Amino acid sequence: MRTITRRTAVFGATALTIALAVTGCSKASTGDSPSGSGTGGGSKNLNIVFIPKNLGNPYFDASDAGGKTAVEELGGKYSQVGPQTASPDAQVQYINTAAQQHASAIVISANDPKAIGDALTQAKESGTKVVTFDSDTDPQYRDIFVNQASPEGIAKAQVDGIAKQIGDKGEIAILSAAANATNQNAWIALMKKDLAADHPNVKLVDTVYGNDDDQTSFDKTAALLQTHPNLKGIISPTTVGVAAAARYLSTSDKKGKVALTGLGTPNQMKEYVKDGTVKEFYLWNPSDLGYLAAYAAAALADGSITGKEGDSFKAGKLGDYKVGANGEVLLGDPTAFNSSNIDQFNF
């Protein structure tokens, strides 16, 4: 059995191409395919609602497309709904509507660990299962958290990467998403520990927030470079932020002088790797993340698992997974993307 430490290193081109077909508006589809070879069998009554942090975000387009594939394999109904902007309270109305419509499960990336807690609790009380993915809530508000990679692994990859690029000394800054984003804050806390322990000559001088908005992130990058003229590197652990920062750097006199790394998708970062703006960045397969979250939601919905530690379920093409401590299921380790491999990926 492949356990929660399973590494996802090779991405299926077909599934990844599907990821880009999801657009930034609400949508639903019903699959007529036979049940998957994994959890509990297919069901025409299975109805899973994906709620990303915000619509129109390429990362969530890819992850939710993976969820759509999984739900259709299981013969259920998939839908994606959500806010246009990633704010703490913006997801509540969509949670409430899904519960009122008796969705089998909600799969949600939380904009805040607490702000949506009451809505999720009411959804659970009405019989709807709750799976968080990418960004967690406090554990009492959900049944399972599907984590893209260990927080420690994600933080270390980015810190070690930027340290290597700047010669392990100098000033760096972090361009994050929303100030309340659970995953971002967990990674940043671990980055600080890694810097102190392993890179004492690398100094974190600022952390700013682009709110997962392209223009805001672009402007924050410009402000960082103006505020900190000796800046040697930027870490942006958000797909929107790292692409916006790369876009700014690519046409500025800081190109090649200020290193940039973070979490991004190959398609959005390819041009910046090829033109020398970015040497290396990191991510997991978001399509597989959504796919795994959908299978976990289906297993909860049909009673195959309850979310307790030690529960196991089959996630279609990804194989077997176990639920770890605090109801967490781990997809795998992050992958490094650079000029040597970026052309191999399409998402």
Rank of each mutant, 00 (worst) to 15 (best):
L46R: 07
L292H: 03
S150P: 06
V146E: 04
T238C: 06
G24S: 10
P83I: 00
D275T: 10
S29G: 15
L292E: 02
D343F: 10
F218M: 11
G75M: 08
A296N: 04
Q140M: 11
G24M: 07
V92C: 11
I4C: 14
I172W: 00
R7A: 14
A173P: 07
Q158W: 02
G67P: 04
G170H: 02
A246K: 07
D112I: 03
L330S: 11
D302K: 12
S29R: 13
Q101M: 13
K156Q: 14
T3V: 14
I95C: 02
N230A: 12
I174N: 00
I116D: 01
A103H: 02
I235P: 01
T251C: 09
L263P: 01
I116R: 00
R142E: 03
A15M: 14
A259W: 00
I305F: 08
I18Y: 13
T216A: 14
I172K: 01
K322I: 12
V202P: 04
K317W: 10
L190S: 11
V22Q: 10
Q226E: 15
Y295A: 06
I235F: 06
N285S: 15
Q80P: 07
L283W: 08
A299R: 02
T265E: 12
Q80F: 07
A189V: 10
E171A: 04
E271C: 08
I172R: 01
L300Y: 05
H199Q: 09
Q158K: 06
V159Q: 03
P266I: 04
Y321R: 09
E271Q: 14
S26I: 03
P139V: 11
D32R: 13
D275G: 13
A28F: 11
I174Y: 00
I166L: 14
F345W: 11
N45S: 15
L46K: 05
G276E: 12
E152M: 10
Y94M: 06
T30R: 12
A293M: 02
V242Q: 00
I234P: 02
T216G: 10
R2N: 15
F60E: 01
N45H: 11
V240K: 00
A99Q: 06
G67R: 01
A123F: 05
A163H: 05
I116E: 01
G40C: 15
A294D: 05
S79H: 05
N346G: 10
I166Q: 08
V130H: 03
F347D: 06
G56A: 08
Q140N: 13
G210C: 02
G210Y: 00
A21H: 12
Y295P: 08
G307M: 09
T238A: 13
N45C: 10
A325Y: 08
V205Y: 09
